[in-house]
């Protein structure tokens, strides 16, 4: 679980940074200065990195036994510039809190 969370956090951060590069630098260059080189290179990379992000988020949600709705919200959060960082922090706090709760809860004897 901890490893899955770390994987998710790393890729969430990378995708967030690339997305901001794309929106803050690439878009103005393309539409303001007619220089599409950043959008063409970073945009492609972002698409494939986002796939890795989806896989990491899916893996984490499976391990943490999340409901479908939360999984989809976390996946969508990765597409919104700046919000992705906030979402990553919330997910980390949530998973850590749930795990702590699970560790402190008494173990079931049977069933």
């Amino acid at each position: 679980m901890r490893a899955a969370l770390t994987r998710y956090r790393v890729i969430a951060w990378v995708v967030g940074v690339v997305l901001i590069l794309l929106v803050v630098i690439g878009m103005p260059l393309k539409y303001g200065f007619h220089n599409p080189v950043v959008v063409e290179t970073v945009g492609q990379a972002h698409g494939f990195l986002y796939m890795v992000y989806l896989v990491a988020a899916f893996d984490l949600s499976r391990r943490a036994d999340w409901p479908l709705k939360r999984m989809i919200l976390v996946m969508l959060a990765g597409t919104v510039p700046f919000v992705s960082f906030w979402a990553e922090r919330r997910v980390s706090a949530l998973v850590t809190a749930e795990q702590r709760e699970r560790e402190h809860a008494p173990e079931p004897i049977a069933g």
Binding site: G47, M51, L54
Partner: peptide
């Protein structure tokens, strides 16, 4: 450049 996106969408 669209060839890349053409691959990405079916994967999604």
């Amino acid at each position: 450049i669209s060839w890349g996106y053409a691959v990405e969408w079916p994967i999604f």
